[in-house]
Amino acid sequence: MRPFAALGVLTLLALLGALVATHVTADQRPDVAQLERAGQARAGDPGPVLAQVDGLPITTADLAERIAIVQANLDYMRQEAATGGPQADFLQEFARLIESAGVENAALGSLIVDRALMAEAQRRGLAPTGDEVARRVAQDRALAPQVDDPRMAAYIAVIGEERYWTVVYPATVQQELAAQRLWEAETGAVADPVERQRAWTSVQARIIGRARVTLVRPDLAAPATLEGALAYLQRYWELYSNANR
């Protein structure tokens, strides 16, 4: 089980780094065009910094990519909710939350969580070392040819294979390992998986509550706002906690 951030499991499935290491059926992933749009945001210069969370930057490229991912997740949730499956009610409520908050605010909120968790892991000595990240990247790169998925191929092709494996994916691995270790440190004593996830939601809310979050270029974040992003997170945590009662 992995720790889930502000967009839950759907975000991790949509982030291409996770596709190598997770077992996800083809119809659960974004289509080629959606991943190409996400890749285009990541292919060039990171752009100027629009926000900082405990000193860690969020750039215009970060936000553009995350907006594309959130939109892909929203489309997926709408489709799944329409099938009437076991998670249909939750996915429908989740989709409504993103729609009411705005895709841009949901994207900025999820990035704020990512940076705050990374900063917390760094403060507590839980962030992975460069060697640990490099080993994981090498392992996943060796496995990548076994993943026969045109969407992953399209995303990497837009970015460029060398840039993806040496710049983009290492950052994804660093974030994932840091969050995983923080999750284990904070919730490892909780045996029940539902209670553990609820505890993790509370941990995230606590960390965000004391983080120093600054929107240094509101014009570059618009239409997202800091207030809108934080309000989205609060409503997400409430939704997730209520869904697991």
Rank of each mutant, 00 (worst) to 15 (best):
F4S: 08
A6N: 14
V9M: 08
A18T: 02
V20I: 15
D27Q: 12
R29K: 12
A38I: 06
Q40H: 11
Q40G: 14
G47A: 10
V53N: 03
L56C: 00
L56V: 09
T59C: 08
A64S: 12
R66H: 12
I69Y: 04
V70L: 00
L74W: 11
Y76M: 05
E80N: 11
G85M: 02
A88D: 08
A88S: 15
F90A: 04
E93Y: 04
E93L: 13
R96V: 06
L97Y: 05
L97T: 10
L97H: 08
V103Q: 02
E104P: 02
A107M: 10
A107N: 07
L108W: 00
S110G: 07
L111E: 11
V113D: 03
V113C: 09
G130F: 08
A134W: 05
Q139V: 05
R141V: 01
R141E: 14
A142D: 13
L143G: 08
P150Q: 04
P150R: 08
A154C: 08
V158T: 15
V158F: 03
G160E: 10
E162N: 12
Y164P: 12
T166M: 01
T166A: 09
T166F: 05
Y169D: 14
A178E: 01
E184V: 10
V190P: 07
A191K: 10
A191R: 11
Q197P: 07
T201C: 03
Q204R: 14
A205I: 01
I208D: 00
A211Y: 01
R212P: 00
A221W: 07
P223H: 14
T225Q: 00
L230W: 06
Y240G: 00
R245T: 11
R245C: 05
